[in-house]
């Protein structure tokens, strides 16, 4: 009798033990509770460190001078000091600089999206002599630093009076050149290779020429690649400062360029405007300015995040 109870208990205990083990450690070593907790903990802590500069920026940009000097105020400012943002907005001349940024990123991005699509399709679908050497040249343009060609281009644009306008970015973009164009051509190339050929063949049987086929059949089903290229081109043009400061000079200043001269602009804006307004520039105001510059990008990312993150899956970039 006792023996029987004991064995039943033993079986029960073993059963529970087994279930617990499965729950915590998992069947395959990577689906147990402990394992998952470790993964989440790692991801969250690495993610926090990774985003630390952004958290720092957000928190500090709302601090008043008093909070800034107070060592007990670490993350949460005592008051939300919006004055920093108002000042930074004025110093950056935000509406004007935003317009300049928009002009210098949307137009080149549109040009690049269209021209690289054509070129990528040409490389993906047709065979012609010299194709492989052209592809080698495209890879070369990917690794060549812009400093090598910057001066001749500067002189060229100067000669044709294009400096000080977005044209030095738009014109090369129209010809499938410009910032990271090699990457965009490759994205399109890989994407068009995944499109089944039967689609074009049936269009051709119906009597459509290659260009008509491209615009009527291929473009409508290539929305993922088009959106991805447009977004990346937009963002990279927006963040470009090295060439922009050279080509645009003083006549047109994008948002990131305004940040370059923030200190100077601040003293000009506020030093002359009388003693009541005198607040010396401090890091909170500068960080508020930095926030204002990346804010449009953050908003874009909030809505279009899916497209950015799925670039590799959507376009089949890694190939087979």
């Amino acid at each position: 009798m006792w023996k029987a109870v004991k064995t039943i208990d033993k079986i029960k205990i073993e059963n529970i033990w087994y279930k617990l083990k499965k729950f915590f450690l998992g069947k395959q070593g990577n689906d147990g509770m402990i394992f998952k907790t470790v993964i989440y903990a790692l991801l969250i802590s690495i993610g926090f460190v990774y985003l630390y500069p952004i958290f720092y920026m957000v928190s500090h940009s709302f601090k008043s001078l008093k909070d800034l000097l107070d060592p007990t105020v670490l993350w949460l400012p005592k008051t939300l000091h919006l004055d920093n943002y108002i000042r930074a907005w004025n110093v950056l001349d935000f509406p004007k600089a935003f317009g300049a940024s928009l002009l210098n990123s949307v137009l080149p991005a549109l040009s690049q999206t269209v021209s690289c699509a054509l070129v990528g399709y040409g490389f993906a679908r047709f065979n012609f002599p010299g194709k492989s050497i052209m592809l080698a040249f495209i890879l070369l343009t990917f690794i060549i630093p812009v400093q090598v060609v910057m001066i001749p281009l500067f002189l060229l644009f100067k000669q044709y009076g294009l400096l000080g306008s977005p044209l030095p970015f738009i014109v090369p973009a129209l010809f499938a050149g410009g910032i990271k164009s090699a990457l965009f051509i490759l994205i399109y190339l890989q994407f068009f290779k995944t499109v089944p050929k039967a689609l074009e063949e049936s269009a051709q049987i119906d009597g459509a020429g290659p260009f008509k086929t491209f615009f009527r059949i291929i473009i409508p089903i290539s929305v993922p690649a088009i959106v991805v290229v447009f977004l990346f081109s937009l963002v990279w043009h927006w963040n470009e400062t090295y060439m922009a400061s050279l080509y645009l000079g003083e006549s047109m200043r994008t948002l990131p360029l305004m940040l370059q001269t923030f200190d100077l602009a601040y003293s000009q804006e506020y030093a002359s405007s009388g003693a009541t307004e005198m607040v010396n520039i401090n890091e909170s105001i500068k960080l508020a300015g930095t926030m204002l510059i990346i804010l449009p990008l953050l908003i874009l990312y909030l809505f279009a995040q899916r497209w950015f993150v799925e670039v590799v899956d959507k376009t089949g970039l890694t190939g087979e």
């Binding site: 002599p129 060609v149 050149g177 410009g178």
Partner: peptide, 26 residues
Amino acid sequence: SFTGYLFVFPWIIGFLLFMAYPIYFS
């Protein structure tokens, strides 16, 4: 081949004007 060249034509022009020539020049 002809259609292929037509499609990649913008790149050829762009490469010659904004890459090959500046490389030679620099």
